[in-house]
């Protein structure tokens, strides 16, 4: 029964966070805690920190994220296709082929336009 299996996964989701919490709490209880002004400061190899932490990032990161998102959604569609392919005839393969080719077009465009370059 499918739901019974997921009960096991649910139990995993409950237990998994407890495993790292235990040593951290133990550490908190056992270790000494002597905070000082310098100790709590931002760690930058001893140099005073300048400016705002949450500054602007490069557009490049966003572009990678977009391309990744598109491919991620594509892969989600390909999973059922891959599972069913063995039991279907060749036309099913062609359907997948067209699907992937349309996306390869997108990848080629991104490549040509230099969206994959890291500057």
């Amino acid at each position: 029964m499918e739901l019974g299996q997921w009960a096991f996964v649910a139990a995993f989701f409950v237990v998994a966070p407890l495993l790292p919490i235990a040593p951290i709490v133990l550490n908190r209880l056992l270790a000494p805690s002597r905070p000082s002004e310098t100790k709590l400061d931002v760690y930058e190899c001893g140099v005073e920190t300048v400016g705002d932490t949450w500054g602007q990032i490069k557009v490049q990161y966003y572009l990678y994220a977009i391309i990744f998102l598109v491919f991620d959604v594509e892969m989600v569609f390909l999973f059922p296709w891959a599972v069913a392919l063995g039991s279907l005839d060749f036309s099913a393969y062609l359907a997948g082929l067209v699907f992937v080719f349309l996306l390869v077009e997108g990848l080629v465009y991104a490549w040509r336009k230099g969206a994959l370059e890291w500057n």
């Binding site: 569609f77 999973f79 059922p80 296709w81 891959a82 599972v83 069913a84 392919l85 039991s87 279907l88 036309s91 099913a92 393969y93 359907a95 997948g96």
Partner: peptide, 11 residues
Amino acid sequence: VREIGVAFSTQ
């Protein structure tokens, strides 16, 4: 999942 796949790739 297999049924989803069949639905995706049959006419």
